[in-house]
Amino acid sequence: MDHFPTNWGRPRNDAFDAYNTYPFHVRPDNGPRDAFADNVQRTQQPIVTGTSVLALKYKDGIMMAADCLASYGSLARFKDIQRLHEVGKFTVIGASGDMSDYQYLQTTLDELLISEEITAADGHSLGPVEIHEYLSRLMYGRRSRLNPLWNSILVGGVKDGKSFLAYVDLLGTTYSSSTLATGYGAYIAQPLLRKAVEGREMDIDENEARKIMTDCLRVLFYRDARSLNKYQIATVTDSGVAISPSMELGTQWGFAEGIRGYGAQTQ
């Protein structure tokens, strides 16, 4: 006997089958009515979301950037949130997608690091490769239970002189490349990043990398309706992780004056 009323479904419909004589296969379906029916709700869609994260490899290590916006649908709901997160001494992660799932991930990783680095304290610290593998197993495990964490995550870092940059998403799909972008950035920024970086990773210094990054962020701000002109840039080099405070993106809207044909202008 199932004791949960939500599982009982609708009462027998007297409009038809008044005497409960219809064969089983045409009776009203008394299965779960809604997402609450089996007493568990799984993430079916992201709610509060972050947009693109960008990352590239350059001479000294890796650089990652994301804006500071968390949207609630089309509403720009939170305008000063951090989407870049330091994990240990060698790694930065950045996430787009559901922000509550992301915060859960941050907590999980922080706990992992406490047990790995502080409790063990034996000189075997987790680098970006290990963090990425761990996240991949976590994300893939959740998707396999059909209860995904709704994120696309970039993991970047430098350890023992080796720089590493990789992606993992809600399906557990992973890949590694010298330039990466999630979300809308995969369409808008990735081509720009590839053009600027591919094949010359070792020639790009920090200044140039910052220029490439901000240019891409600017294009995204012009084109992506869920983006913001406030952003952070993180670098990971041999000397460690540095996440900048949030910065304002210089933009240029003067050209809008000259546009004719739609909007408020009538001629």
Binding site: A120, V129, Y134
Partner: peptide, 11 residues
């Protein structure tokens, strides 16, 4: 499987 690293011997 989880960390893609050979387990540290001391652990």
């Amino acid at each position: 499987m989880v960390f893609n690293r050979p387990v540290p011997v001391n652990r």
